[in-house]
Write a protein that binds this DNA or RNA. Structure first.
Lengths: 348, 348
DNA sequence: CTGTTAGCGCATTCAC
DNA sequence: GTGAATGCGCTAACAG
């Protein structure tokens, strides 16, 4: 075990030991200018001997380059699951490439005071906001600030706002076309409770209306059900739907717990997936999709894309104050896990 | 909306506008020396006018006081649930009082390289490790380092290691005494799978053996079951136990999913809690305990205590290099949620 | 290829 | 009560 030196070695210590000037040590580190092999070796040996590690905070102060970024992940009631961490990890990986660390911030979404304190401290160089609402106080506050920020998701008024979001307008058509091409003409849409939709939750509204519009174009009938997010509600919803509309050959979900209920009910009724009923699910993570029996075909944004893109945009904004506003919509991806198939012939 | 100033105001700007020297502004801020009311007012007005906020990073550099601490929370497979956030929030709150920010770090527990990079950066002033294992590579690495650190949980060889942990040796006796006082003489212990115990998972081993020892002293018979952590296994375990040992009047759990199964099976069998069977559960959070029907009486460490204590110790170590090693065991707390009661008279 | 110099924004010691 | 001066550890012109 190495002896612990009394104090942190500094660049000056290294320079002295290597017999070069301070700045030469810096340049040897960054490679920003050519150094003779011999000098470089002496410096490296000195660094080793002293156990020298550069001090990022001092560097940040001097260079005025970003070194710490916050990711606001308001956890609220539901915690953070493994799929959420895709965002975080992707953002973190992207940041590390630039030598930037990620401060994961989990305060309540309404605790603007805490946010204000964080920002005022001058500790962080930028911030990414997750779980953005149609009207979001955090955005209002940050707009009054000099701090660069990017949102994952968008507010209603997104003027001059840099954001990354899923392109929900494309989700509906993608689903409809996939099913219509398989011959389905009558489908169920198991959506969120009415209250969620009415409160202006963007993803559901945009997806739902784009789906309806495309269904009309393709001559597909859609039966919309606003289901509470639990297993029992999903079971009941499916049972009622099939009674009322026996011609339904596919169920599209935007409600993970309810869809578990739908799958349970199908199993109870002896209906097979996808032979008797096709299943398609919006927005759930691969982990959630693989967890059920059978696994579900999904339409969503690949984990990590949003996090990575957000960090990329933020870095641009931090580095270049006059960088243009970027509003990015990530295209949806359909992952076929075998729960959709040709429409069965069914006696209406 | 305020106009965005071209650049951040500095202390020098404030001093100039207020017509005082730089240091006077500093002292006005910290209150470290007397300032005339008149001067103070001028300074405060100047700060307001300029929208001045102190720059934490520069302050940290100059004062050499800690300003950023990492909390390593290896999320692994299971994600972060709301009760986990108790630790985080408690630590974060404690840190904020000292003007320290918390960097929540979720990299894999085995990614020592990433840890090395984080530490080498010189960005953080200390680190708290969660989910510590009996033999933990992170600890091995950090020991070779000058960076102050504290663990939540302890390694096998904890020489010169500062840690906070639950006092598992006290869990068993607390449970046994509680039940024995209620007249129970034959109980089941629904523990973790044998593999977990054999791999040297400290909490289970310590709790289990302290429970056995105290049971012997109090003349209580304990039937140990190593159950897989899922609902079905719990149901089966209870059914078999009651068949083999009908005299059992209480079930003690250290296995959240299995205990849900136990409760289900009791309900199916028409047995009431606590009239027919008492239930006591180790180590689960209040949220988990309240989630079941009926809610469960628990023995555990109050959420937040560990996080708060860990941060306190870390701050001490960062502030005072020669601070003594602290090894703290937090006492258990029994929270009675009504699932334990007097032992029923049962015909053996 | 390498050294010198002047800061980054602030805390703090030493003067008055 | 207040100001001047020095330095935290490093970067980045500006000089050779």
């Amino acid at each position: 075990m190495p002896q612990q030196p009394p104090r942190r070695a500094t660049r000056a210590d290294v320079a002295r030991l290597a017999g070069v000037s301070d700045s030469t040590v810096s340049y040897a580190l960054t490679g920003d200018r050519p150094i003779s092999d011999e000098t470089r070796e002496r410096i490296e040996r000195a660094m080793d001997d002293l156990g020298y590690v550069p001090h990022a905070r001092a560097a940040a102060l001097a260079s005025k380059k970003p070194s710490l970024v916050a990711l606001h992940f308001p956890v609220g009631e539901r915690g953070i699951d493994v799929s959420d961490l895709n965002y975080v990890n992707a953002a973190s990986d992207r940041a590390e490439v630039e030598g930037i660390q990620l401060l994961m911030w989990t305060h309540d979404i309404n605790d603007i005071d805490a946010l204000r304190r964080l920002v005022s401290q001058g500790l962080i160089d930028g911030i990414i906001l997750m779980e953005v609402r149609q009207h979001d106080e955090r955005v209002d506050y940050l707009r009054t600030t000099r701090l660069p920020f990017v949102t994952i998701g968008r507010t209603k008024d997104n003027t001059a706002l840099s954001y990354i979001d899923a392109d929900f307008d494309a989700w509906g058509p993608l689903a409809v076309n996939h099913l219509a091409d398989l011959g389905h003409t009558e489908v169920a849409l198991i959506s969120q409770p009415g209250s969620v939709v009415e409160s202006g939750y963007g993803p559901v509204i945009l997806t739902q209306s784009s789906l309806m519009a495309q269904a009309e174009r393709r001559g597909m009938r859609v039966h919309l059900v606003n289901s509470r997010p639990n297993i029992r509600a999903g079971r009941e919803a499916l049972a009622q739907l099939l009674t009322a509309h026996p011609g339904i050959t596919a169920a599209v979900g935007f409600n993970a717990p309810a869809m578990i209920g739908v799958l349970e009910e199908l199993a109870v009724m002896g209906l097979r997936v996808p032979e008797d009923m096709s299943i398609l699910h919006f927005g759930i993570s691969p982990e959630q999709a693989e967890m059920t029996v059978p696994a579900q075909t999904t339409i969503s944004v690949p984990g990590g894309v949003l996090g990575d893109e957000a960090m990329t945009v933020l870095i641009e904004r931090m580095t270049n104050a006059s960088a243009p506003t970027r509003q990015i919509l990530a295209p949806p991806v359909l992952v076929d896990r075998g729960s959709t198939g040709p429409a069965p012939l069914r006696a209406d």
